[in-house]
Design a protein around this nucleic acid. Structure first.
Lengths: 193, 193
DNA sequence: CTTTTTGTTGATTGACCAGTCAATTAAAAA
DNA sequence: TTTTTAATTGACTGGTCAATCAACAAAAAG
């Protein structure tokens, strides 16, 4: 039943299935066949559209990263004060689609992938630079040393992420994670409330 | 040349080779043959002593964890004040054998392993509980909310770890990492220096 | 000196999997 | 209607790898 325009549909389904399978299994050790089956197509089709397993992984990474970027832009659009911008960045990190268990688990695995795949490393570096840059920008009018505070906050966010990847038992507690980062930011700003 | 007492020697060599290979490759995707060759023995011997690849991985994890514990005990023994205890814990996290690039890279991969291997998850949970407990204990006389500060510091340490796992270019900058955590702790304690 | 124990490996097996290819279907274009 | 083109797959291949096993070597025990 070859209807034209299937390509975008199939690629989307395959990318989502990739994230879901990596997340569910908690490992990059998923076969193309498993992913394809989860997407409802044959493994040959996955190779047809993506060329290789690595490309499929990279596409999944890009999907997560761009979803994160979109969420961040959405939240930042509502923020006018520097404090609100900080909150927006933090909420984007732990909110919406970005904090679903499979996504967090996949995220952790992409860190591993970045150790071998130069492309994956590049993507991750872009994300990290953007996060630190957003934080620095928002902190500039507030903190004595915006750069250091931003780097610390970024590391804290990453740390909370992987802690959540492990604590797979129980629901992903976004509220606590957000509160933890915001408490740190309040300290760094010198807020004595 | 079967001299008695080889067992302990070989097992040590295999465990070290496992850490080194996982670290070098940046992935759990290392073959038993590669590890065995790096240890100077046959793959059959690795299976003879450890039974399975998983057991070998777990032994490597235990080695890293117990090295970390030893370092922590060593540093804590020199500390008398609560402040010194905090410093000791932070230094143990980023000092000595624990911050070599291969070890950090292997560490990241053990996080991934813990998502599938219940044993690995257990080991990691023990380490995390001990870290938070040590930090809480040292923070009790210093901070208003020792538990929260300890959890935050632990997440920060983990975050800095994986950031270093990625920034494989350049030397592992322990000093900066230590300074970052101590700066946070100073804030959390309410130090206004 | 013989026997046992310990250490060690090459060869093999059984399973799995990424990637290829030729063939098939049906929609769309000519 | 005929032809082209997009979508799709089953079957296959070449390669890899964990785990097993039977056999061998040499030290230690008797």
């Amino acid at each position: 039943m070859p209807r034209v325009g299937m390509m975008a549909l199939r690629m989307d389904a395959l990318v989502n299935a990739t994230i879901e399978q990596i997340g569910r299994k908690g490992s990059l050790d998923v076969t193309v066949s498993q992913i394809a089956k989860a997407a409802g197509v044959s493994s040959a089709l996955a190779h047809h559209y993506f060329g290789s397993k690595d490309e499929l992984f990279l596409a999944a990474m890009r999907a997560i990263l761009s979803e994160f970027g979109a969420e961040a832009r959405r939240e930042l659009a509502r923020a006018s004060t520097p404090q609100a911008r900080l909150s927006a960045i933090v909420r984007a990190s732990f909110g919406g689609q970005n904090f679903r268990p499979e996504v967090v688990a996949a995220w952790l695995n992409f860190y591993v992938l970045a150790q071998t795949q130069p492309q994956a490393a590049r993507l991750l570096a872009v994300y990290q630079r953007r996060l630190v840059s957003n934080l620095t920008h928002a902190l500039r009018p507030l903190a004595a040393d915006p750069t250091t505070a931003a780097r610390t906050a970024a590391a804290l966010i990453d740390g909370l992420y992987i802690r959540h990847a492990l604590a797979s038992a129980g629901p992903p507690d976004a509220a606590t994670a957000i509160a933890t980062v915001e408490r740190y930011l309040a300290l760094a700003i010198g807020d004595r409330s």
